[in-house]
């Protein structure tokens, strides 16, 4: 019976099967469309809506007329206290927030998978690596981030310029402080996989460790990693906005959704929409990413699949 099941799967291909299962998850599908929409808004939007998000009218009289405007055709989301177009700022901010989420997740997943595979596969360094994981779990993120910025800002900014420099620093700092969960999950999977017949077989014919890892272990830990990665994006976007909320994130002339929300809170009584737009954008993005992660987990878990 199992043989026929495998046969059918092969015909459809493993990923086709996952996709078929994923499509049944209504929440995840809605989320996928929503996230797609948000991505288009941020990535394609600025090509259509060509207003500089940092443009300030230098003629004072004109500038005062442009301040704090409500929604209009010229500025669909209004303007801020310096007359900057909020729609353009939201698009620009979205790019940064999404980029931070994705890159920080990649960093975290890369470190997490490496540590997890190493710890699970090589018994000798398992204890050491897991203590390292515990150590990182007990570290406070905030001072770490400040220190990293302090130590490396000048060098990084000198090479890449202040904006890209801050971006890389924040992304690395978030990545370096959020890989631990992934490492634990991967280690658990690897520990189980190591005792499975196909790995034992590979070992018995003298396959070197590196090959076993790349050929047999990594493809099989892909699904938990994928799920962890999706959830990692959500966590990274939230972390970036918390940092901005605490005033430790990007510089103010470099809007991200978190930064816009933080700036908006100073105006929440007079112009609540300036909090609501970025707040909604963050919430919707994170919500969709989490839903997609949930859908992926269901689709990738063979025990739940088909029920």
């Amino acid at each position: 019976m199992t043989e026929t099941a495998v046969q059918i799967e092969k015909v459809r291909g493993p990923w086709g099967d996952v996709w078929a299962q994923f499509r049944k998850h209504k929440g995840a599908m809605t989320a996928l469309f929503l996230l797609g929409g948000l991505a288009v808004f941020c990535l394609i939007g600025p090509l259509v809506w060509r207003i500089d998000p940092n443009f300030i009218e230098s003629d004072t009289v004109k500038m005062f007329k442009m301040r704090n405007q409500g929604p209009s055709l010229a500025h669909p989301l209004g303007t801020d206290q310096l007359g900057r177009d909020m729609l353009a700022r939201m698009m620009f901010g979205g790019r940064i927030s999404l980029a931070v989420g994705t890159v920080a997740m990649l960093v975290a997943i890369f470190i997490g998978t490496t540590v997890g595979v190493m710890a699970g596969f090589f018994r000798r360094i398992d204890g050491l690596l897991m203590r390292l994981t515990d150590l990182f779990l007990a570290l406070p993120l905030l001072p770490l981030l400040l220190v990293m910025i302090f130590l490396f800002r000048d060098t990084v900014a000198g090479i890449l310029g202040p904006r890209l420099g801050t971006f890389l620093l924040i992304v690395m700092a978030i990545g370096l402080t959020s890989w631990m969960q992934a490492a634990r999950v991967v280690r658990g999977e690897v520990l189980a996989l190591k005792e499975r017949e196909f790995v034992l077989a590979a070992r018995s014919i003298g396959t070197p460790s590196r090959r076993i890892i790349t050929r047999h272990i990594l493809p099989n830990v892909l699904s938990p990693v994928l799920v962890a990665a999706t959830l990692g994006i959500a966590a990274a976007i939230i972390t970036e906005s918390v940092l901005s909320f605490l005033g430790l994130g990007f510089p103010p002339d470099f809007p991200t959704w978190g930064r816009l929300l933080y700036d908006g809170i100073a105006e929440i009584r007079t112009y609540p929409e300036r909090v609501i737009w970025p707040g909604l954008a963050i919430s919707l993005t994170v919500l969709s990413v989490n839903y997609i992660g949930d859908g992926l987990r269901d689709a990738l878990d063979p025990r739940i699949r088909g029920r």
Binding site: G27, I268, V275, I276, V286
Partner: peptide, 22 residues
């Protein structure tokens, strides 16, 4: 329930908190 849970940890507390105060 799923939606409630998803929304619960997706919507940042500094967003809901400030709105609730207002």
């Amino acid at each position: 329930g799923t939606f409630f849970a998803m929304a619960g940890f997706s919507v940042p507390t500094f967003f809901t908190g400030n709105l609730l105060i207002l």
